[in-house]
Design a binder for these strands. Sequence first.
RNA 1: GGAGUUCGUCAGGCAAUCGCGCGAUAUGGUGCCGAAAGGUAUUAUCGUGAGGAAAGUCCGGGCUUCCGGGGAAAGGAUAACGGAUAACGUCCGCCGAUGGUGACAUCCGGGAAAGUGCAACAGAAAUAGUCUGCCGAAAAGUACCGCUUGCGGUAUGGAACACUUUGUGUUCCCGGUGAUGGUGGAAAGGCGAGGUAAGAGCUCACCGGUAUCUAUGGUAACAUAGGUUCCCUGUAAACCCUAUCCGAAGCAACUCCCUAACGGUUCACCCCCGUAUGGCAGGAAACUGUCAGCCGUUUGGGAGGCACAGCAAUGCUGGAGCGCUGCGGUAACGCAGCGAAUAGAUAGAUGAUUGCCCAUGACAGAACCCGGCUUACAGAUGGACUCCUUUU
RNA 2: GCCCCCGUAGUAAAGUGGAUAUUACAAGUCCCUCCUAAGGAUUAGUCGUGGGUUCGAUUCCCGCCGGGGGUG
Length: 152
Amino acid sequence: MKYKAIGENHLYQKAYRRGIKAVTDTVVVYCLRDFAAKRLQKEHPEKKKINRIGLTVTKKIGGAVTRSRVKRILREGFRLLDTEKKIKKGYLIVLVARDAAVRAKTQQIRGDLAYAFRRLGMYEGEPAPQFAVPKAKRKPDAAPSDRTKTGE
RNA sequence: GGAGUUCGUCAGGCAAUCGCGCGAUAUGGUGCCGAAAGGUAUUAUCGUGAGGAAAGUCCGGGCUUCCGGGGAAAGGAUAACGGAUAACGUCCGCCGAUGGUGACAUCCGGGAAAGUGCAACAGAAAUAGUCUGCCGAAAAGUACCGCUUGCGGUAUGGAACACUUUGUGUUCCCGGUGAUGGUGGAAAGGCGAGGUAAGAGCUCACCGGUAUCUAUGGUAACAUAGGUUCCCUGUAAACCCUAUCCGAAGCAACUCCCUAACGGUUCACCCCCGUAUGGCAGGAAACUGUCAGCCGUUUGGGAGGCACAGCAAUGCUGGAGCGCUGCGGUAACGCAGCGAAUAGAUAGAUGAUUGCCCAUGACAGAACCCGGCUUACAGAUGGACUCCUUUU
RNA sequence: GCCCCCGUAGUAAAGUGGAUAUUACAAGUCCCUCCUAAGGAUUAGUCGUGGGUUCGAUUCCCGCCGGGGGUG
């Protein structure tokens, strides 16, 4: 199972503004319903829905070596979680690394991601997550804790 | 054995399972998007997959574009000498200077006798004579003496005051002199003797330096010895002068393809020269219109540049490229032969788990490509050399 | 990735070879006042950092460190 990466900057901005969010020590997870999911499903040879993931590792984390290592660990953690449990398809998932992710192991990342996805209700069989109210678009920084509550 | 100098090499390894980028193969693999160029997703097998600094972007090139060629100006860079190189501000050798007992290290390195500027504070004074100090020689005038009657010799700088007695001292003026004067980074080459009215490279000996000549050694810088000349501080990482070199921008440079539309066909804003127009129609001509060619701009999409290169492409040729060997050279490096040639991403590929070993792996990730420099860095290991101690 | 620019008290700026580095606001202390404000006095600088040139460097030269801007 391959993962299509998010390339466009505006999709990241959308995920930050309108997506639901969960925060752990090592990583911050944003999720948003992918509006291009049907087109991607049509392009897929097996006609499956897929998730598009994006990784954000800022220069504050470290140099090029540490940043690319953090990206590998995040990718591996997500891959492990995805093979174990079933995550809902057709979403944009943005993973933002925090300072603690530099010294983290893959298993810790996997656990943090599992905690975050459970809070966000992204597993199969659970009720669909509610997205943020449109008013949050005007004030992106206002009351982030409320949005996580609505996500539960 | 100890202490040290210097030049190199490696940059954890092996195995298993899962996972990632690229290439090839698969009936042009299969699906999807697109008008097209093309792209993208995915399956299997095989191959392949970051560095000595990939970094900083500090120099030098390749390459691409700016229409082509030549010249000038401005600006910039470099700086003993000889060599290496595609080139360099790099490298090697060597000279000089500095440091070290030494192996060795470092580079401070054109010109201040072309000119301009600056030199705070201190100091009398900062490139120069206003103070202080020393002196009254010479010249002129005056007085006296001699006689060869217009010359020679002797004395005296001028004024005031004081003491004393025809000189001495004080103050002021005139003239000479140039280093005595706590300073300062720097004070007119240093020191000694002679010389002088007082002095001064004014003269001499020794020492130091500048320029230049000769001899010897060296390709040369330069070194040694001798002769001549001169001795006016420092600063050129102040302006500047001399010699040499440099056009500018940078792959987000740019090129090509598909698609649609518009404009020009003339001009080169440092100077000079060159430069694409042709056919048809109208007109006497200037010129106008139109078509083709050429050039440019813009909308949307895509590829290339880009992974050894080029070509007439299972091969051939070539290269500032890499490794090994031999030869030449003190060395940098050169020449010859042989061999191997695959990172190429585009939100950006090397990870996770387990086991074993060495005994815990530092700095750190290609982004058009090379040659250097600089900076960061855990260790392991090889060669050469120096000093000290001991033994033979 | 490439090309540029800037670092001076807490903040914003001057100073571009010379003595103890200025100015405004802010902050601390003191005075004034019954108290506060205003006013007055005063304090605090490795001039980002390490070398070099120079008698002398915030200034000139070189190397690092940090920050910012432009460019599809």
